[in-house]
Amino acid sequence: MMIDLKGKVALVTGAASAEGLGFAAALKMAGQGARLFLTDLNAEGVEARAADLRAAGHEAQAMGQDVTDEAAWAATIDAVVSAFGRIDILVNNAGIAVLKMMSEMTKADWDRQLRVNLDSVYLGCKAGLDQMRKQGGGGSIVNLSSIAGLVGVPGTAAYAASKGGVRLMTKAIALEAAREGIRVNSVHPGSIWTDMQKVAIADNKEQFDIIENAIPMGHLGQPEDIGAMVAFLASDDAKYITGAEFTVDGGMTAQ
């Protein structure tokens, strides 16, 4: 059955990269009828992605946003409501990866990682919930975590702390909002073929071979694999799912 998002308004953060998870989710939801509002720290890049969606016949707008700034969240929510009248779906996708061993990690590294990956999701969920409640309840929030928020991976202490925090914060918020019909779930990607992954591979081909061989399905995932999961959780087909975590990892965490 085709997922139907016709008429729903979706806000997606961190959507400037044409090969990133945010834009993949936006593209999938747009194809199912959603109206998209995209944001990113890279204002020029995210405007280009909205233009791509419009060129394909979809409704889309965009603006620059620093997801770590509470005032910027208020401005973003106002802009989405001004453009489309409401928010039905919020995808907290924006994030960075500070990958360092503990012995090499500075306090500044740690603070930056948690600010961008964890504080931003708190701010997004708070702003999104407030708006959905103003509309009378109902809606879907999807938070992007990682398999590093589920299992230990060397060199990811700060990243794992941020993504593990997203996982459990998602569950707590889901329980707070469940009676209002607002669903909150997390998606945990494994190794996905994104721009970030391509850069890492170019720098260390040997490490890539090790990672790929460790995936039971034998290959990295594609951004659209994550986009499809996000779109499902955003839809009414997932109307009885909240406070849950979904791994999209080719079987990595099943080992």
Rank of each mutant, 00 (worst) to 15 (best):
K198Q: 15
S145E: 09
L144C: 05
M132E: 09
A200D: 12
I77Y: 00
A238R: 04
I241E: 04
D209Q: 13
V9H: 05
D111G: 04
S186F: 00
E59M: 12
A108Y: 00
F232L: 12
H58R: 12
L144V: 09
A75Q: 14
S145P: 03
I182L: 11
G7L: 05
K6T: 15
A94Q: 05
L220V: 13
A231S: 15
L220H: 00
V80F: 07
A244I: 05
L175N: 08
M1V: 13
I141A: 09
L175Y: 01
N117G: 06
A202G: 06
V9E: 07
L150T: 01
G64E: 11
V46R: 06
I182T: 05
A48G: 12
K100Y: 07
S146C: 04
L129P: 00
G95W: 02
L27M: 12
M1N: 11
Y240W: 15
M196S: 12
L21N: 11
D109V: 10
L5R: 01
M101G: 14
S17D: 15
A15S: 11
S82T: 14
D66L: 10
A97K: 01
N204S: 12
T194H: 02
F208C: 10
I192E: 06
T68F: 02
A55I: 02
R35V: 12
Y159H: 13
G137Q: 08
F232D: 07
E224D: 15
L11K: 05
D69S: 14
I192R: 01
A25H: 03
G20F: 03
A157M: 12
V151C: 06
G250V: 05
S191A: 15
S186C: 12
W73I: 06
M63P: 01
D130T: 11
S145W: 00
K28P: 00
L118H: 02
S120Q: 04
I211D: 10
K239T: 11
K163F: 06
P223W: 00
K126M: 12
